[in-house]
Computed example of a mutant assay.
Amino acid sequence: MDVIKFLVTRPDDTVLVYLMKNKSDNTYSYVNITKWHICPCKFQSIQEAIKDMDKLLEEGKIVRYEFTN
Rank of each mutant, 00 (worst) to 15 (best):
M1H: 10
M1N: 09
D2C: 10
D2H: 13
V3M: 07
K5H: 13
F6Q: 11
F6I: 05
L7H: 10
T9G: 04
R10W: 02
R10N: 04
P11G: 04
D12Q: 09
D13Y: 09
T14V: 14
T14G: 08
T14D: 03
T14R: 15
V15K: 11
V15G: 02
L16E: 14
L16P: 11
L16M: 12
V17I: 11
V17A: 04
Y18H: 13
L19Q: 05
L19V: 05
M20H: 03
K21A: 01
K21E: 04
N22P: 09
K23R: 13
K23G: 15
S24K: 15
D25F: 01
T27Q: 12
Y28C: 03
S29E: 09
V31D: 09
N32A: 00
I33M: 11
I33V: 14
I33R: 14
T34K: 07
T34Y: 00
T34N: 04
K35A: 06
W36G: 13
H37S: 06
P40V: 00
C41R: 13
K42S: 11
K42A: 07
F43Y: 13
Q44M: 03
S45T: 07
S45W: 00
I46W: 06
I46L: 10
E48H: 02
E48F: 00
I50Y: 00
I50Q: 06
D52Q: 07
M53E: 08
K55P: 00
E59G: 04
E59P: 11
K61A: 01
I62M: 08
I62P: 05
I62Q: 01
R64I: 00
Y65L: 09
E66D: 05
E66K: 15
T68F: 06
N69S: 13
